[in-house]
Simulated scan of single mutants.
Amino acid sequence: MNSITLKPEIQELYTLNEFISNELQEENLQVNLIVEEIFANIVNYSNTDYITVNVEYETPTLTVEFIDNGIEFNPLLKENPKTPKNIEEAEIGGLGIYLTKELADELEYQYENDENHLIIIKNVE
Rank of each mutant, 00 (worst) to 15 (best):
T100W: 04
N41A: 08
I87T: 07
E88S: 13
N2V: 13
I38W: 06
I42N: 12
Y111R: 07
P8A: 03
F66L: 03
E12Q: 11
E89Q: 06
E102V: 13
N47R: 11
L24E: 04
T100L: 03
V31D: 03
F39V: 06
P81I: 13
K101M: 10
N123I: 12
E58M: 08
L77W: 01
N80R: 02
L6A: 15
L99R: 05
D114C: 11
T52L: 04
F19Q: 07
N17M: 13
D49P: 06
N2R: 15
L95S: 03
I4G: 12
E36W: 03
G94V: 01
N32S: 10
V55T: 07
N17F: 15
Y14S: 15
N22F: 04
A104V: 04
E12P: 08
P75N: 05
V43T: 11
K7Q: 04
G96A: 02
D114K: 13
E88R: 11
P8S: 03
P60D: 03
M1L: 13
I97W: 01
I20S: 11
V124P: 09
T61R: 00
E91A: 04
P81T: 14
Y50C: 15
T48V: 05
L16R: 09
E115R: 15
E115W: 00
E72Q: 05
E18Y: 13
E12W: 09
L29R: 14
G96I: 02
M1K: 13
F66P: 00
Y50N: 15
I10E: 15
S21F: 08
Y57M: 01
N32V: 07
L29I: 15
T48S: 14
E89Y: 03
I4N: 04
D49L: 02
T100I: 06
N116D: 05
N2F: 14
N123C: 08
L77I: 11
T5L: 12
E36G: 07
K85E: 10
E102Q: 13
E91Y: 06
N80G: 00
E102H: 07
N22Y: 02
E37N: 12
I51H: 01
E23A: 10
K122A: 01
E91V: 04
T52S: 03
T83A: 05
L99W: 05
E36T: 11
N74A: 14
S3Q: 14
L13I: 02
A104N: 08
Q11D: 15
L16P: 00
I34N: 07
Q11R: 13
I4S: 10
K82I: 09
E27N: 09
Y111E: 10
G70M: 09
K101S: 12
A104P: 07
K101T: 11
E9A: 08
G70C: 03
F66I: 04
E12C: 06
E72G: 02
S21Y: 10
Y111Q: 08
F66S: 01
